[in-house]
Design a binder for these strands. Structure first.
Lengths: 127, 127
DNA sequence: TTAACAGTTGAACAAATGTTCAAATGATAA
DNA sequence: TTATCATTTGAACATTTGTTCAACTGTTAA
């Protein structure tokens, strides 16, 4: 996590395009939410967690079932579920010994949908 | 990156809800795109890169200016721009000594917009 | 040619991350 | 109670990752 950085090299002291830098500084979104967004994407940015989220998009599932579906140990899944829970992305409910997990927010589906559109369009980027 | 995993513990051999697991297995998106999506999110999931993308949302910028704006060295920025370039998220054009970078795709803005909505709504998640 | 400088690159290093393993909970059923 | 089992947890480990530093391109201008 990059915090403040006072280290200054060469190039940094004399900005080339002062007007552009100031313009962007004014108009770009405030710092804190950007860090939160990065944090959110970081949680999505692991293939195991991404697969778990895709699975939970279809149906509520217990730890054991997710582990079976993805071919991993319950321990590994549980660790990742904890991360998803802390990020507020999943909810859970307990029924006896079994804990069912489900998606906590509709934004998640939306983000994955747009991301899927992006990766399935074969490099047809528009300027 | 989690590849295949043949390791089986206890819980994995006897799936609790066979019907649910099979249902999800059928309906969840195919494997490969999910890995691509995770890869995309991983690129977004670093605060430096996220800040760079937010800056480029406002205006095209050169390496030096981005470094000045974010208070980092050009080297660090250049390394990250390479990652963004490889992911197909930024384009660049050279004008003399200066290299200008800009966003390559409209999906990026869209993804960040939705992500911002998510993080700014203070935990008001709907079921 | 030479000097200056924007940008890139590779090696090195510290910090963060995901999985495994073993042990511990917590709930059910005998 | 005891045994069983789904789940959680913490420590350990290997791997990945971001930044720094120094050296190197490539372009401009003297």
């Amino acid at each position: 996590m990059s915090e403040r950085n006072d280290r200054q090299e060469f190039c940094e002291t004399n900005v080339i395009h002062y007007d552009i830098v100031e313009n962007v500084r004014e108009k770009m979104p405030p710092e804190d939410p950007v860090y939160d967004v990065a944090e959110l994407f970081k949680v999505f940015g692991d293939s195991t967690r991404a697969r778990m989220i895709c699975a939970l998009t279809v149906s509520e599932m217990c730890v054991c079932d997710i582990a079976a579906l993805l071919g991993m140990t319950s321990s590994a899944i549980s660790h990742q579920l904890r991360i998803l829970k802390q990020a507020g992305l999943v909810r859970n409910r307990r029924v006896g010994k079994i804990v069912y997990y489900s998606l906590a927010d509709e934004h998640i589906r939306q983000l994955f949908t747009v991301a899927f559109e992006h990766v399935t369009e074969e490099k047809g980027g528009q300027l």
